[in-house]
Design a protein around this nucleic acid. Structure first.
Lengths: 211, 211
DNA sequence: TTATACCACGAACACCTGTTCTATGTCAAG
DNA sequence: CTTGACATAGAACAGGTGTTCGTGGTATAA
């Protein structure tokens, strides 16, 4: 159920006051800021905000209001959690992400400097040397975006059905064939029939830790 | 001037309470937690903590205590800012970091999942294809740790004086010579006189964004 | 027209909260 | 032994704070 304008202003004031002061406002401070002269009206609206799931109130405690989203989310909302689904290796199809990309299992956190997308994102750890032609090393982490269509030039994970092999290469449509171009420009492309290719995801970030 | 044990316990309680509750404690809550029965004593110690620069008190306000370090630092202390000093390319020595690795210029933020070290860390952007034998592509970001000595197996940026060239390779001492081994195991190493080699830093993370 | 739900408001209240005052103890320096 | 600084403690106080009560207005549905 939609919030009234007054309730929205109350919520925004709580959010802003809390960030600025590092403690939440009192009933009276909220009233003063939003133009409500009665503590009873503020109390009534706060109870609605709590019922609707926007805030949590601690009873009979001064400044006993916290935002449901939490202060942590406010101050570090530029972190993205990426589910780490498993591994990518030459001889296996890659793990299929759940439709909701839930974070129930292992995950890795990245900042927005590294990763701006959030939809359909998952991470895989590289096993083996077979991705070297993509300049990707055993042990690297690849951040994938789930998609089954590829645009020319995308670096994609493809499953080659006949060969029973996963490979990471740049993808180009060429008539009824697909050209799979190693990222290493000194290496030759391979050409396969389009029907032999199953695109499983696009690589959008590679991370290598050397320790 | 050192804090008394009681003052340290008060400070730690404020920090923990604030993280857990998203609002600071009252004078009486502090007293109860630390075993001080008198609000006057708590008040006295809080005034000392403020004088010594650990907290900030807002006068005559309930829960008017905030930590000097700030809640933001507490909740997102798992982010590291890395100065982005410039570029690494074959024909140039890499930018020399200031001794204090100050963050006055451009920087990139990483989570602790990616980078755990903080001392002597800086980032460089790769220019050109010359690092491909290190499986590092034009446009990649390399995170360096400043050091001028290398251990066997480290992936280091070295400046080859005679050749006037920067290269990234795994470093091995071999008598009076140095073996520089490409990370790509299909490529041959090079051998240079130790006097020709100037280690400039060790690569600890590589990040590739494909957009 | 009536009933109900929602919203607003002032007033009062009980309790919370921070500050101040007074008294006392401990310790180190002179 | 005295003095001053530091620390502790209980009590009292003024003002802050959240909750409750009673009242009234508006809109909608029956």
């Amino acid at each position: 159920m939609a919030l009234s304008e007054r309730q929205q202003r109350i919520l925004e004031f709580i959010r802003r006051f809390t960030l600025e002061n590092e403690y939440p406002p009192t009933i009276r401070e909220i009233g003063a800021a939003v133009g409500i002269s009665s503590t009873s009206v503020v109390n009534y609206n706060l109870n609605i905000l709590q019922r609707e799931g926007y805030i949590i109130r601690d009873k009979e405690v001064s400044r006993g209001i916290r935002l449901k989203e939490g202060l942590k989310e406010l101050t570090s909302r530029h972190i993205v959690k990426v589910p780490l689904l498993g591994r990518i290796a030459a001889g296996l199809p890659i793990p299929v992400p759940d439709s909701d990309f839930s974070l129930t299992g292992e995950s890795i956190e990245l900042t927005r400097d590294i990763l701006r997308e959030e939809e359909g994102i998952y991470a895989l750890e590289v096993r083996g040397d077979s991705m070297i032609d993509a300049l990707i090393h055993d042990g690297d982490i690849v951040i994938m975006k789930h998609q089954q269509e590829a645009n020319n030039g995308d670096l994609v994970a493809v499953w080659l059905k006949d060969e029973k092999e996963t490979t990471l290469k740049r993808f180009y449509h060429e008539g009824s064939r697909v050209r799979l171009q190693p990222a290493n420009p000194t290496m030759d492309p391979i050409y396969v029939d389009a029907s032999n290719v199953e695109v499983q995801g696009k690589v959008i970030v590679v991370i290598r830790q050397l320790n």
